[in-house]
Design a protein around this nucleic acid. Structure first.
Lengths: 211, 211
DNA sequence: CAAATTTTTGACCGATTGGACAAACGTTAG
DNA sequence: CTAACGTTTGTCCAATCGGTCAAAAATTTG
C-alpha cells in the first residue's frame, strides 16, 4: 500500500460516516439530480444532522465529486477489460453482458451518471474529453483491428460502443418506463434475462430473417 | 381576470406569451430538470418578469405539465406511424431513421422526457402505464406478426422497441458525451449520418462477419 | 374620446436552501 | 484524572425559492 500523496488521514469513525453519507447521497443524487437534491435530504437518509454531515463533507459539491470519481473507475472497468486476446465476438458478447449486469446491479450509479451527462456534464466534462475519450479511442482501435482481420463485420467502432452503452444503460436509466410498458408479468425480475437474450441476438445477427 | 386552467379562449397576447414561455421553459427544464429549474430562470429566458410569467401560468408545475402533454403527442408519432402495410424491414428502418432525426432536431424534447423518466416519472407515470403501454403492445403485436410471417428474425418485439429508443435517443440525451468522445473532427454535424449508417447495419445484419 | 379589460410590475411573504459557528459532548492518550 | 482531540448539535444567517397582491400601465371595446 502506498502512503497517500494527498490522501488525508482518517479515523475509524470518519471512514464509516463518510461511507454512510456517500451511500445515502447516491440514493438522493441519482433520483433527484444535483440541483434537485438537498443536503437535508442526504443527511436524513444517512441518519444524521445537517451540521454533522457538513463536518465530513464541507460542501454539497464535495459529496457529488467524490461519488463521481469513484463511479467512473468501476463504471468503465468492463470496457477496460475488453481485450485483444480471445475470440472478438466472444469478447464483445461478454462486454455487453457485463454492462447489462451493471445496469441491473448498480442502477443508481447509472442514473447518477446519466443525470450528470443530461445536464451538460458541467462537473466532469474534462474527464469525458480526457480519460474517457482516450480509453474509447484505444478500444475502438482494438475493435477496428478485429474488423480488419475479418473477425467481425466492418462498421464504426465508436458508434458500436455507443450502441452498447445505450442499450444496456437503458435498462437502468429508463427502468420505470421499461417496467411500465412490460407490465406486471413481463416486467418482473426476468426482464434482464429477456433483455440479455434479445441484445445477444441483435448484436450477433441483426433482424434480417435467416435464409 | 385570471387565465383559467380550462378556459381555452385566449387573446392574441396570451397565445404569443404562452408560446414564448413554453419555448424558454423547454430550454431550462431540459437542461436542469424540474426541481433544478427556477421560475426566475424561465422568466429571464423568456424576457419577462416573474410575476408576469405567473400571470400566464399560475404554477411552475403547469408549465411543465403543458410541455409534457405536447411532447408526448409528437414524440410518439413515429411509432404510431409504424404500419402493417409495406415491407417490414423497410418499415423498421424508416422508424429508426425518423427516431434518429427527432433526436437530432428535437434534443431538448428528448432530454426533457429523459429527465422525467430518470427521476421516476412522478408526473407522467399514469401515461406510461396507460397510453404508452397500449401503443407499444399494439405495435409489438404488429412486429410479432412480421416475425411469424418470416419477414424479420424472431426475437422479443418489446425489447426491440426499447433498443431502438435507446440507441436513437442516446444521441440527444448523451450528446455531450458523444461529442466529447468523438472529438472535434468526427463529433461535428456528420455524427448523425455516421450514426444512421451504423444503426442501419446493426439492426439489419448485426456484427457477425459475412461469409 | 372614455370606460372596461388585459397586461405588467415592484414590493413583499413564508418556506427552504447551502452553509457557518460556537458550544456541548464523546473519546483517547499521557 | 485530565488535557487534547474528535464528534455532534442547536442556533443562526444570507440567499433563493415559489408564489401573492395591489396598483400602474397598456390595450381593447363601446
Amino acid at each position: 500500500m502506498t502512503i497517500g500523496t494527498d490522501a488525508p488521514r482518517r479515523t475509524r469513525i470518519q471512514q464509516e460516516k463518510r461511507e454512510l453519507i456517500l451511500e445515502a447521497a447516491l440514493d438522493v443524487f441519482s433520483t433527484n439530480g444535483f440541483r434537485g437534491s438537498t443536503i437535508d435530504q442526504i443527511a436524513e437518509a444517512a441518519g444524521m444532522s445537517k451540521p454533522n454531515l457538513l463536518y465530513y463533507f464541507r460542501r454539497k459539491e464535495d459529496i457529488h465529486e467524490t461519488l463521481m470519481q469513484r463511479l467512473l473507475d468501476t463504471w468503465l472497468a468492463p470496457l477496460r477489460e475488453l481485450d485483444d486476446i480471445g475470440d472478438p465476438m466472444t469478447e464483445l458478447r461478454s462486454y455487453i453482458r457485463r454492462k447489462l449486469e451493471m445496469a441491473r446491479d448498480f442502477p443508481r450509479e447509472s442514473r447518477l451518471f446519466a443525470n450528470e451527462i443530461l445536464q451538460g456534464a458541467p462537473r466532469i466534462m474534462p474527464l469525458l474529453a480526457g480519460e474517457l475519450k482516450t480509453l474509447v479511442d484505444e478500444k475502438a482501435a482494438v475493435i477496428r483491428g478485429w474488423m480488419r482481420a475479418g473477425k467481425i463485420a466492418k462498421t464504426d467502432p465508436w458508434h458500436l460502443i455507443f450502441s452498447i452503452w445505450a442499450t444496456t444503460q437503458h435498462y437502468a436509466d429508463f427502468d420505470v418506463q421499461v417496467r411500465a410498458v412490460l407490465g406486471p408479468n413481463r416486467g418482473g425480475d426476468g426482464r434482464f434475462e429477456d433483455a440479455a437474450r434479445f441484445l445477444e441476438q441483435l448484436f450477433l445477427d441483426g433482424l434480417k430473417p435467416k435464409g
